[in-house]
C-alpha cells in the first residue's frame, strides 16, 4: 500500500507567540518548532496501516529549511521517505497554494491513501486536507477519530454534534486526523539514528510546475486584546452582591 502523510511544522504549543511590529507575521526567532499535533495522528495512522497491510509511507511537507527537522521526525517514527517542498514563495502560503503544492508533489508518486491533520494549530484554517482531495479529485473523510482500511475501501468515524457519522469510501482518499484517532508513538533511538539515511527529495515550485499566486492574503496580524482584569464584588450581604452582579451583567457586560 502506498501511503502518504502530509505534515506541517508549527510553533510548539508552549511557545510564546509575538506578532511582528508591522503585523506581517509572527516573530520566528527563539521559537521551538514541532510537528503539528494533528499531523502526528496522521503519521501514526499511516504507520499503523503500513504495519497492518504492508507498503510504505511517504511524508510530504511544505516549508523552509527548518521543516526538514519535522520530516526527519516522521522518518524517525518509521516513514520510509520524504518530499520537502521548499520555495520562498510558498513560505506562509495560504491553504489553497499549500494544497496545490502538495497535490503537485503527490501526483508524481503512487498513492492509495493520504493522511493530513484536520487542521494546523498555527493558522487554524482547517482547509488543506479538503482542498488537496478536491485537487486530486478523490473522496475525503475529515475529522476522523477511527479508521478501518481493507478490501479497497476505508471506513471512517467522524464525530458530529451529539452523534457520529460512519463514512465509507473507495480508495484512494484523503483522511484528516482528529485527536482520539490514535496515540502517536515516540521516535525510537534506532529510528532516530536511521532517519538521516532515508531519502528526502527537495523540490521547489518551478520543479513542480505550479503557480504560487495566493488565493487569500493575510493583510495584517494583531495580537488579541489584553483581557481586562476581573471584578470582585465586595460586601457582606449576599442578596445585595447578587443584585450587583445582575446590574453589572445587564448594564456593563450587556449579556442579559
Amino acid at each position: 500500500m502506498n501511503i502518504v502523510a502530509c505534515v506541517k511544522q508549527v510553533p510548539d504549543t508552549e511557545a510564546l507567540i509575538k506578532v511582528k511590529p508591522d503585523g506581517s507575521g509572527i516573530e520566528e526567532g527563539g521559537i521551538k518548532w514541532v510537528m503539528n499535533p494533528y499531523d502526528e495522528f496522521g503519521v501514526e495512522e499511516a504507520l499503523k496501516l503500513k504495519e497492518k497491510l504492508g507498503g510504505e509511507v511517504t511524508v510530504v511537507s511544505v516549508g523552509p529549511a527548518r521543516t526538514m527537522e519535522t520530516i526527519r521526525t516522521a522518518l524517525a517514527m518509521g516513514a520510509e521517505k520524504g518530499i520537502h517542498i521548499d520555495d520562498p514563495a510558498l513560505y506562509n502560503a495560504d491553504a489553497y497554494t499549500t494544497a496545490n503544492a502538495l497535490a503537485a508533489a503527490i501526483k508524481e508518486i503512487p498513492y492509495d491513501i493520504i493522511f493530513c491533520g484536520q487542521r494546523a494549530i498555527d493558522g487554524d484554517m482547517g482547509q488543506v486536507g479538503s482542498i488537496l482531495a478536491e485537487l486530486l479529485d478523490i473522496p475525503q473523510c475529515t475529522i476522523v477519530t477511527k479508521l478501518d482500511v481493507g478490501d479497497g475501501k476505508a471506513t471512517a468515524v467522524k464525530p458530529i454534534e451529539g452523534a457520529q457519522l460512519v463514512l465509507e469510501t473507495s480508495l484512494p482518499c484523503v483522511i484528516t486526523a482528529q485527536k482520539g484517532l490514535n496515540e502517536p508513538r515516540y521516535a525510537s533511538l534506532p529510528g532516530i539514528m536511521k532517519a538521516k539515511k532515508k531519502p528526502v527529495d527537495v523540490k521547489n515550485a518551478a520543479a513542480l510546475g505550479i503557480s504560487v499566486e495566493p488565493k487569500a492574503k493575510i493583510e495584517k496580524m494583531t495580537p488579541p486584546p489584553a483581557r481586562p482584569p476581573g471584578k470582585i464584588i465586595e460586601g457582606e450581604d449576599p442578596a445585595a452582591k447578587a443584585a450587583e452582579v445582575i446590574r453589572l451583567l445587564r448594564e456593563e457586560a450587556k449579556v442579559i
Binding site: 526527519r72 515516540y186 521516535a187 539514528m193 532517519a195
Partner: peptide
C-alpha cells in the same frame, strides 16, 4: 546534530 535534537525532544516528551 539532528539526531541529538530528536533524542532530546523525544526524551523530553517521554518524561
Amino acid at each position: 546534530t539532528e539526531e541529538q535534537q530528536m533524542i532530546r525532544d523525544m526524551s523530553r516528551k517521554f518524561a
